[in-house]
Design a protein around this nucleic acid. Structure first.
Lengths: 120, 120, 120, 120
DNA sequence: GTGGTCTAGACCACT
DNA sequence: GTGGTCTAGACCACG
């Protein structure tokens, strides 16, 4: 279910939740699956799932109602976009650009590659 | 000198050496700075530098002559290009494309961003 | 209506009832709203309201007449004052004083802050 | 060593570290005891200590150097003051003021109580 | 040696 | 039922 050697599992889970929020599968105000339920569903330890939820609520993307569960925040889409944008353009993509330029890839080629990706 | 929170330091160092090879700063056959010297220069633990050299040796981008030092391999440029290309287009860039698409970034915008990067 | 992240909701409710008793809104002998009614009014689970009443009964600040409802005790004002005084000066305020002193807040400033609070 | 029934242990530990920073016992740039060492010293599970450190580094009061340890941030004093001030005056002290006013405590009395606390 | 992640299982308070 | 905390012990990557 999860890549073993890359990012931490709890971060992969958090990423997925974010993706669901961006995709609209998870609307603002929606209740997330309970920690235990979700943990069982993706076959991880409840502690690990808890950590993912904890991480997201630290970012104010989801919030908690005592004894009831976790819910996605009203401005979750905003928060997620902002966060991802920052991650992408401040960190990851710069590194990718650097390598592309060293390899002599032109903007035109990159555009085509991305175009092709979108079409599949 | 190095980002503490992203990739492992020894990998960041290895990346730079590769960059120097691609850029021609480091020609095939050139001797690399000694582990200790290089470690001191970029202020990391000699063990860490050793690990970077070790990693590059494993990829046969550099090689070791006992008691003399490390040298860049004859086909280093080739090896590095091949390696980077594989890394980029098989792994990293796919993930980047996925996220860009979720965020609604168009090929046109991506091209511009890359263009801008190249110009600075 | 209630802060989700600080004290337990049932304790927050209990606190308010006490406040009403001190303020005279709730006179000794008065009947409290029924659990269900009160729960609906402040939008909490009836179980939670029950727990608040239960907690106050345990402190003998209110009492229960089976089948009729909950009533504020004759010496409720006394009990509440005593309880709050003990809580405040034995526990909470000492901790607050400790932190204030670490932050370098002077008695004069504290007095002013409290003065300002009273005036609003 | 720690109060069982009040705040979570990891938060109590975090609070202490903050106190040490305010008191100057822990200077900006100082290395904190290693997770394991500190955990053993105060007799908690290393995971619990880890959580305390994690919490503090989330607040950017301490930071981590890979493979070396945790260090107090350069502006830690600032951060801590700001944080504590917010906690105190936005949350805790308002509640205390509310109760004091209900009990009829005057600013003068409060000032004296605090004065007395400082003198001991 | 350092931190970081994960599992397993227990216990608690709250709704 | 919900989340939250804690312990114990294991394993890994990094310096």
């Amino acid at each position: 279910m999860f890549k073993e050697n890359s990012k931490a599992i709890y971060l992969q889970i958090a990423d997925r939740v974010c993706d669901d929020i961006l995709a609209g599968t998870l609307q603002p105000g929606d209740k997330l699956p309970s920690v235990r339920e979700h943990a069982a569903a993706v076959q991880v330890n409840p502690n690990t799932m808890m950590r993912a939820y904890d991480y997201l609520s630290g970012l104010e993307i989801i919030f908690n109602r005592r004894g009831i569960g976790y819910f996605t925040a009203g401005d979750a889409v905003c928060k997620v976009r902002e966060l991802k944008m920052r991650q992408l353009f401040d960190d990851e993509i710069v590194e990718v650009f650097r390598q592309l330029s060293l390899l002599g890839v032109t903007p035109e080629i990159l555009k085509e590659k991305y175009q092709k990706y979108l079409n599949q």
